[in-house]
Every structure is written in structure tokens, then in C-alpha cells.
Design a binder for these strands. Structure first.
Lengths: 351, 351
DNA sequence: ATCACTGGTGGGAGCGCTCCCACACTACCT
DNA sequence: AGGTAGTGTGGGAGCGCTCCCACCAGTGAT
């Protein structure tokens, strides 16, 4: 008789052992069937599967995690306050892609916000406890210590936008440079000449690349790049508004604006309206992300579409490979581990 | 020598045993310190804490879960597609409250969507594996089988809106009946007499209670309740629009509308505008939720505020008690386990 | 007949905890 | 002195898996 074997046995969930007894085989064989090993005869497999069904057996995750040293869970870490997560369609689209890619997997997705210092400390603790097999990092700033922590803990991770051109982590990104060029070239092709740019947070590498794209598209078209036509934003509505006000003050003759996000564009639109400018007659406006906001804006916003859901899916693919390949520091070259997806300009009536 | 002891020991995380050796005590003592048991002398506790710090010990969650038969995780189950989750501020506010209440806990929150049949099957499997200690259920419909599954699995659960007046699960709700009365009485006090109501999904108990509140506020004020002035919506923008169109067709002389949610009100507003009605001059409009939408609507929307964050916090309190008290079927009376929070009318220019 | 192999299989050992029993050792009664 | 409680504490047993080694047929080559 077990000393305290009955504790917590709510309803007496069947164990591997019981399934084995029922099927008339050994524990190892049942484990093999459960885990889809090919080294089991068809007859045995059928017997085990029958026993599993009869008993309603469900593997005990904790036991498996302990024995196999894995958790079957990955975390999507958002280093932002929750508010921004809900305000920016970028995140929800990403989540959709990630969820889709994970849905035919046994993997569980954990959504973790780490906006405040406190939350970040909690997260560090959490990661140190190895409660996930891998981590998806979105929207990481240049000086974020998180990636290094992950590396030190040897937890596989994939980042959604490289921190710099020298990123060492596997990453998935859209072609920010190319997307920005598409936007600017589009505006120029419409006969606009005084094109301004409201940037994103410049500690985000992707935002920098968009500035680069803006600059080079302008100069390649034979325009002098006026630094006064570039104003820093921060991806928020408020930032877009502020930047637009500043731009109008410096250059009242602006006839086009390329904003680093749709939300930013929405703020810019408000400032333009307040200043009595018509869109697109007086000023053409182009955003970035092609989110729901772009479609519902008045007038509908031309925007650079990033395949965000697709990016989410690719990130999962990369991460799962990484998790599976976890042989000791096997990091083969980075060739296959950094991917850049193409963007597409969606033209609407704001330009 | 262990046979395969070295497998997967990435970086050699210290174990309880090692901490014990270092501190010169037994395993049990370290466990007691880690779990904050009072039956440890101060000197011993200090020694153990020092060893923990030196070694950077972090408990292995899987081992703990296996031995103690708990997971230290709870799930927030949203029986809706993700899209609705992001579209409705109700959920994000709830999440905020829940997150806040959980932040000084060791508990991990899992966000699980179960909108499609497929996702629901996955969820059932997940719950059967007892991967969480408790479940928070939001936005449950009258005929949802989930609560029964939870009961059968003996998993503690708290529901955010009772399914009926005979709800057996612990629940937290706002006073839907009272809130609706506030809205209607407000409209009547402004001199409106032909007040219509666009309902929420009627398979949600709270939506029914709002209808009850509307009915009784009208008749208490001496108005005959005209069933033609009640039109079913479904909490969506589209539903609100559709309902408003139907109402206007039947009763062109409507001078006030109480909508069961802000999103619904937003749809109604569109229909009213299209029909050339001015708000509030021709028709006064009141919503429900007091979400960001209400504040940003044009004109700003009068709305019934539910303390959603507070509700989230209370749900966690209830659930944690439930989880802790998990003695065999101890369900003491329901007195303390169903709470109703007061609402508040926030008056803006739409009424 | 003997010697490889090769697919299948059983079951011991061990993952790192928690629980609880047993055993000090003290302090305070009769 | 001999009980009788209490405090702290050590460590065995066990949670339900996975891993891997040993073993047992069969099969074909020698």
C-alpha cells in the first residue's frame, strides 16, 4: 500500500502503467506508441491505442516535462505595456499567425508582457526556471538585455525584427528598407516633390531602415534630402500628431508625408486636418502596416503592407527547428536563420 | 555514477539537494524555506537563503508540479475568436485587472482562445491533462458545455457572468439590471419618452438582465413597454447598425436609444447619421461599458460604466481561494461566491 | 549448425521535487 | 525523577513519465 499515494488523485487519472497492464504490454511500449515511435508493430500499437481510448488516458505533462526536460510550451514575449499590445494591430496580427502555426502542434503558447521593470524581473525569473522551451521576441529595442539573457540561459529564441545589421539571433523581418522605398517612390510618381517622413522609434532597427529607404529613394530620384523634412515619431498616434505639427511649422509647403506606421499616419492626419489641409488634395499621406486602421481611415489610407501573419508563422517554424535541433551549441551558419519578407504597397485614396 | 544523469543538464542547474549540502541541512529543510513554512529556525533559514543566493537556485517547476500535483498556472478562457478579443475593450480591460491581481503571485496566466470547434477540442484535451489549477471563464453563453466539463474534471473555475439566475459556479458580474435602469432613467429624466433598446446577444444572461432593466424602468415610469421598441443585437457594430435600421423603420419617431454595448451604440450611431438624425438633438444615445470607444465617439457617448478591471481582480481572488480550498468537494454555500458589482452612469454629450 | 544482425519489447533507473514519518532535543508540568 | 508536549530537522518513498540497456525471437549469410 502506498504511503500517500492517494493524495490529490482527483478521479484517479489513469497512468502509463495502467494502460500498459490493460494492453498487456510494458511501460516502454506504451510510451513509444504515445510518442509516435516507429519501432512498434502494428498489432501492438492497435492494442495500446484501444487501451488508451478505453481508459481515457491523457499523459501527465508534469511527469513528462520532468523526465524529458522539456515543457512543450513557448513564450511570446512582448516587451511593451499591455495597452500598446491592444492598441497596435501589429501584435494581434502577429499573434494570429503564431497561433495558426502552432495549432497543429502540441506546443502551448504563453503570452507574456514585460513592459515595466517589475514585469521584466518576473520574466527573468520565469525564464531562469526554464518554464518554456523557446521564446519569440517581438518589438525589441536596440539596448534590450533580454536577448543576451536568453543566450546565457541557452534558451532558443527567434526575434521579430533584428536589433541591428549584426543580429546574431535567428530573425524574421519584413523588408523595411524596400517598403519605405516603395512608399516614397509611389508618392514621387504621383508628382509630389516635398515629401516628409515621420519616423518610428529610432531605437528600433526597422524604423531606422525605413528612414534609410526614405533617404535613398529621395536622393536616387534626384531630390536633395532635407533633414528638416524628417521628424521623429514613436509609432503612436500622439507621436504622429506631434511630429506633423512640427513639420508643418518648419515646412508649410509639404505636399506628401510618409509615416512609419498607420497609427502614426492617423495622428498626422489629425494634425493636417486641424491645419486645414485636405487629404490627398493638399497633402498625400502614406502609412505602414496596412492594418484595419488604414482601411477605415477617412480617406482610406495608402499603406505598405507587411505580411505580419506570415511573419508570425515563419517565426514559429524557425523556433521549432531551433528547439528540435538543440544539440550542444550546434549553431550552424546563420544563412537559413534570418529571413526577410517582401512588402507590398496598397494604394488607396489618401495619395 | 548516474546512467544518463547528464542528459539535458544545460549549464547544470543546481538542485534542492545541492542547496541542502551547501547550507549543511537536509532536503526537507530547504524545501520548507523555499515554500515559506514557519517551522524553520531563523538561523537555518538564513543559511539556506544564503546558499540559494550563492548557487542561483531556481526551483524546477516540473518536478514540483509532479510531486505536489499542481501547476501554478491558471487559464483565462475566451470562448470567442481572437478577432473579437481584440475588437472588444471588455476583454483587454478584464485582462488588465487579472494581470494586476496575479502580479504579486507565483501564478502564471495562460490566455486561451476557444472560438472554433477545433480550438474547443484542443482546450478540452488541455483541461483533461490538468495543465492548469483553475480556469477563468469570460463571456459564456447559456448552452456552453465548458462549465460542465470543468465541473466533471473537478477543476476550480470562476465565471465572469453567470449563465442564469441559477448559476452554480462562483461568479463575478456587474449589476446589469441596475445599469440598464440607470441608463433608461437618465434618458427619461432628460425628457425623452420614446426610448428604444438594442439588446446584446440574448443567450448571454447579462444581456437579458439589461432588457429586464429597460422594461422595468420604462413601466415603473408609467410608460407602456412596446415590444416593437426592442430589437435584438449581438454586441457587434454591425448588429447595432442592423438593429437601428430596423427600429427606425418601425418607429421613425424614436427619440432615444439605449444600446447594450458601446460598440453596438457605435453601429446605431452610423445608422442614425445615415438616416439624417442628429445626436443628441433628434435622438439621444446611451451605450454600455464606458470603453475607449465611448470617449472617442462623435459626439462623446454617455455610457454605463462597469468596473471591468475590478471584476477581473475579484475573479482572481475568488479563483485563488477556490484553488487553495480544494479540499474534497468542500463547496460551502454560495453566499460568498457570487458577487455583483455596481455600475455607474457616465454622462456625456450624446444624451 | 553457427554467427551476425535486426526489428520489437520489457523494465530498471532516474528526473527534482513534496509529503510525511521518525527522531532528536528542549521546556514545562506533575 | 518521569512524563508530556511541543519545535526543528533529516531523509525515505513516491509522483508518472522518458531513456536506455538488455534481451528475445526471427532471418539470412556463412
Amino acid at each position: 500500500m502506498a504511503t500517500h499515494g492517494a493524495r490529490g488523485r482527483s478521479g484517479g487519472r489513469p497512468t502509463l502503467e495502467e494502460v500498459a497492464a490493460r494492453a498487456g504490454v510494458g511501460r516502454g511500449t506504451v510510451s513509444r506508441v504515445i510518442n509516435g515511435s516507429p519501432r512498434v508493430s502494428d498489432a501492438t500499437r492497435a492494442a495500446v491505442e484501444a487501451a488508451v481510448a478505453e481508459l481515457g488516458y491523457v499523459p501527465n505533462t508534469a511527469a513528462r516535462a520532468l523526465a524529458a526536460n522539456r515543457t512543450d510550451a513557448i513564450a511570446l514575449v512582448v516587451p511593451e505595456p499591455e495597452t500598446r499590445f491592444f492598441a497596435e494591430p501589429y501584435f494581434s496580427d502577429m499573434l494570429k499567425g503564431v497561433g495558426a502555426a502552432l495549432s497543429d502542434t502540441e506546443m502551448q503558447l504563453l503570452l507574456i508582457f514585460a513592459g515595466s521593470d517589475r514585469e521584466r524581473r518576473r520574466l527573468a525569473q520565469y525564464l531562469a526556471a526554464h518554464r518554456v522551451d523557446g521564446v519569440l521576441l517581438v518589438s525589441v529595442h536596440a539596448d534590450d538585455p533580454l536577448p543576451d539573457l536568453l543566450a546565457q540561459l541557452e534558451i532558443p529564441a527567434v526575434i521579430s525584427g533584428p536589433r541591428s545589421s549584426a543580429e546574431t539571433l535567428p530573425s524574421v523581418d519584413s523588408d523595411n528598407y524596400g517598403g519605405a522605398r516603395q512608399a516614397v517612390e509611389h508618392l514621387l510618381s504621383r508628382g509630389r516633390t516635398r515629401v516628409a517622413h515621420i519616423t518610428g522609434r529610432l531605437d528600433v532597427y526597422g524604423a531606422q531602415r525605413r528612414v534609410d529607404g526614405y533617404r535613398e529613394a529621395m536622393s536616387d530620384a534626384g531630390h536633395r534630402v532635407d533633414e528638416g523634412m524628417i521628424e521623429a515619431g514613436d509609432f503612436t498616434e500622439e507621436g504622429g500628431h506631434r511630429a506633423m505639427v512640427a513639420l508643418l511649422e518648419r515646412h508649410p509647403d509639404i505636399d506628401a508625408v510618409f509615416a512609419a506606421s498607420d497609427v502614426t499616419a492617423s495622428g498626422a492626419r489629425r494634425a493636417l486636418r486641424d491645419a486645414g489641409r485636405r487629404i490627398p488634395e493638399d497633402v498625400a499621406l502614406v502609412g505602414y502596416d496596412d492594418s484595419a486602421i488604414a482601411r477605415h481611415m477617412e480617406p482610406p489610407l495608402t499603406s505598405v503592407r507587411q505580411p505580419i501573419e506570415e511573419m508570425g508563422r515563419r517565426m514559429i517554424d524557425l523556433l521549432l527547428t531551433e528547439v528540435a535541433d538543440r544539440r550542444p551549441l550546434a549553431s550552424r551558419g546563420l544563412e537559413r536563420r534570418q529571413m526577410v519578407l517582401a512588402t507590398e504597397l496598397v494604394s488607396r485614396s489618401s495619395s
